[in-house]
Amino acid sequence: MRFGVVVFPGSNCEADCYYVLRDVLGAEVDYVWHGESDIDRYDCLVLPGGFSYGDYLRPGAIARFSPVMESLKGFAEKGKFIIGICNGFQVLLEAGLLPGAMLWNESLHFVCRYVHLRLENDRTPWTHLGSEGQVLRIPIAHQQGNYYADEKTLRALEDSGRIILRYCEPSGEVTRRANPNGSVGNIAGICDEDFNVFGLMPHPERASEEVLGSTDGLLIWRSIMEHARGNG
């Protein structure tokens, strides 16, 4: 499986994703400059966190017009995989590859801390190595991660099992208190209809080594790599 980590001007987690995929997981991975539109050689594209175009105007609003984004629709339709982390998730929303939008955190502050996440669906390419109800400990770092979607969209997400992660207590209970940004339904991560496109606010690459304090993020990386090998 070959990964491509997309670099927008202002991305700042691209090196982290690249490092985890290559040095921790031994995967094949390249950087993909946002101006490239030929992405056929990749099986999975990673839209990393950061502040593409400074988050000026709205996070992700300008990055979505990069040539690489134009190619992304066709890429997903071919059954290939896209994961958008934090700013990458915001880009996917702006591009309409995932439904909904991001509002400012309720506190209005940037917040960087470990959160607990309840795994809501373990039958996806991204999570099949986990089990439903499992609690993951992964950091978040964002100012606009307050997910919003209208009622109809929410119901559709819910009914089709496309809500993948929700903020929760260490015990797994989904409570208001455990919600770090005010997102509707404590939503932290969702998929598209075919489960090829995954967007999430938490940073799995920051929880992929023991020395950093958690390896819970490996579940996502390993799931997609196993899936590509035909397992799960």
Binding site: Y19, F110, C112, P139, A141, R206, G213
Partner: peptide
């Protein structure tokens, strides 16, 4: 204060 700062990016911060 420090939760408003991204103190983890670059994956080097081993004591937070």
């Amino acid at each position: 204060v420090y939760e408003q700062y991204d103190h983890m990016v670059q994956l080097n911060t081993v004591v937070l």
